[in-house]
């Protein structure tokens, strides 16, 4: 029996809609899980009541709200609340799709670099456009750190500029690689249980307890990673936006 840990990342068209140029536009399993994530967030945020004493669903909605709001306030200040809808959408979209993707037999949207890259570039261009629109050329003072001696300033500026333009790369690859690696590891260990059982019989099934235990432990870790990567993506977005809002710092 062959276990293919990559198969879970396949994009399978459910129905084809048309073509743009020579690209096929299809509603795929990825699109379906994007729809699922949007639907879950909408239900969570809209179907929960607005009671004075919140119920369970309303508590979750309000905790999400307060969590994202306090993250923005602590990293980008109260001016960062302009971007509350954007950061909230990013955080909830990534968090919910990661958590849905961890359920066996589902698809994880953020295990595709093109998706995380698109989100990271959205953040990158938001920062760049808002920063220039708000501060003009002063925005580029983020490349000139204070208190650096003149003779190494060109080098420091070069590094700063390079790191600024590499932000979307690290921003997107971090999320993508975490989700991809976690899911592959889970699949490999889970597949190992079946492989042992089918190749060694009863002894193999008994020996499979070990990789099974590891799978359970990894699963718990992956739930943490699913949330944590969404949080990291959101907090990095806040930090980048902080540059656009307060370029002097």
């Amino acid at each position: 029996m062959k276990i293919d840990p990559i198969h879970q990342f396949n994009i399978e068209p459910l129905f084809t809609l048309g073509h743009i140029g020579n690209h096929t536009i299809a509603f795929t399993n990825s699109s379906l899980y994007m729809l699922v994530a949007v639907a879950i967030i909408s239900i969570l945020m809209l179907a929960s009541g607005t009671q004075l004493v919140p119920g369970r669903l309303q508590s979750v909605a309000e905790i999400s709200y307060e969590f994202v709001a306090s993250t923005i306030r602590s990293t980008a200040g109260s001016e960062g609340m302009k971007f509350f809808p954007l950061i909230f959408s990013l955080f909830m979209f990534i968090c919910v799709s990661n958590l849905v993707g961890i359920i066996p037999y589902t698809f994880t949207i953020s295990s595709h670099l093109i998706v995380t890259a698109a989100l990271a570039l959205l953040v990158f261009f938001t920062v760049l456009i808002y920063g220039v629109a708000k501060n003009g050329l002063k925005f580029f003072s983020i490349f000139v750190p204070h208190g650096v001696p003149g003779y190494i300033l060109p080098l420091v500026m070069f590094i700063e500029i390079l790191s600024f333009f590499l932000r979307p790369v690290s921003h997107s690859v971090r999320l993508f690689a975490n989700m991809l690696a976690g899911h592959i590891a889970l699949k490999v260990f889970a597949g190992f249980v079946a492989m042992l059982g089918f190749s060694l019989g009863a002894l193999g099934w008994i020996g499979g307890v070990l990789p099974l235990a590891l799978t359970v432990a990894l699963y718990a870790l992956e739930i943490l990673v699913a949330f944590l990567q969404a949080y990291v993506f959101a907090i990095l977005t806040c930090i980048y936006l902080n540059d656009a809002i307060h370029p002097g710092h």
């Binding site: 795929t28 699109s31 994530a37 945020m45 959408s89 979209f93 093109i114 998706v115």
Partner: peptide, 29 residues
């Protein structure tokens, strides 16, 4: 070959989510 589909649907769903979040969800909560 899958990029175009993913990008198109991501744009559609993320914009939809942004509109729902900014116009309905966040004001309500």
């Amino acid at each position: 070959s899958t990029y175009a589909s993913q990008l198109v649907w991501l744009a559609i769903f993320f914009v939809a989510l942004y509109v729902i979040v900014s116009k309905l969800a966040l004001p309500k909560v």
